[in-house]
Design a protein around this nucleic acid. Sequence first.
DNA 1: TAAAATTAAATTGTATGCAATTTAATTAAG
DNA 2: CTTAATTAAATTGCATACAATTTAATTTTA
Lengths: 146, 146
Amino acid sequence: MDLLKLENQVCFPLYALSRMMTAVYQPLLDELNLTYPQYLVMMVLWEHRELSVKDIGAKLLLDSGTLTPLLKRMQEKQLLKRTRSAGDERVVLVTLTQTGLDLKTKAAHIPNAFRCHIPLGDHELLAFKDTLTKLLTKTETTINNN
Amino acid sequence: MDLLKLENQVCFPLYALSRMMTAVYQPLLDELNLTYPQYLVMMVLWEHRELSVKDIGAKLLLDSGTLTPLLKRMQEKQLLKRTRSAGDERVVLVTLTQTGLDLKTKAAHIPNAFRCHIPLGDHELLAFKDTLTKLLTKTETTINNN
DNA sequence: TAAAATTAAATTGTATGCAATTTAATTAAG
DNA sequence: CTTAATTAAATTGCATACAATTTAATTTTA
């Protein structure tokens, strides 16, 4: 068996599916004028009132090279504020504006709207999510124990 | 249950795992001076002697906006040739150079080297690949039947 | 067959990702 | 207490992704 054939790859369908899911989200997110990574940032900030850039990066597995310009664009859209921490001037704290907080109402229908496009039953979808989450966690550990 | 929480998302672990897997490949691909998308292009061209940009896009689910500059970079690295089809001048046909063909030897160890970093047994990995492939295919169909 | 529609790449513009470096602030060590 | 090491963001540079448009070639159709 030729292991260098596309059909024998695990990561190609992972890569392609990830992009396809983002494409499924896009028309829904267009209504909120958000990209998918920006939607993820909104989600962690709806959940946690105030987070540093590092905190957001730890949750989304993104570094400041990605987050700094992304957060600046979100700030330009009046969704959030970025302020230096008083206690530690190295840290930038991010909080949502009222506009950003209010956007959660407009986003409330997105999870269900998205769900409709996924051709999996509830049980399979949950099992799939579990597999992904466990593999993500385990791989993260594996990599860090280098 | 708040469906707008990060932990309740299916697509976040998909998105994060996809990027993490690419990061696992990177040190292996560095030896070949390839990025992950370039590696995928090499793979389809090792398998098929000649492909149009459209063919490559159909296999990798990428459009000419992504592929044209990517293929130009690979051409600059002497990995492939791009020529207009004689029969249909709209079509650009891509074939590997001898250098590109020869690179398969240097790539032969990559699948196994990569496999070592994935904390899953053979059976689970195959099952995971199947799930991904089926969901990719089904979602593709769902989207096209819009 | 000539105009209209379609198709394949390329181009343009914007938004990630990420490696590598830089800057500024804080902490650790001697 | 002062220097060295570390840390958090920002910056720089490069490579995807992808929407939207453009260009050139081919097909369709009236």
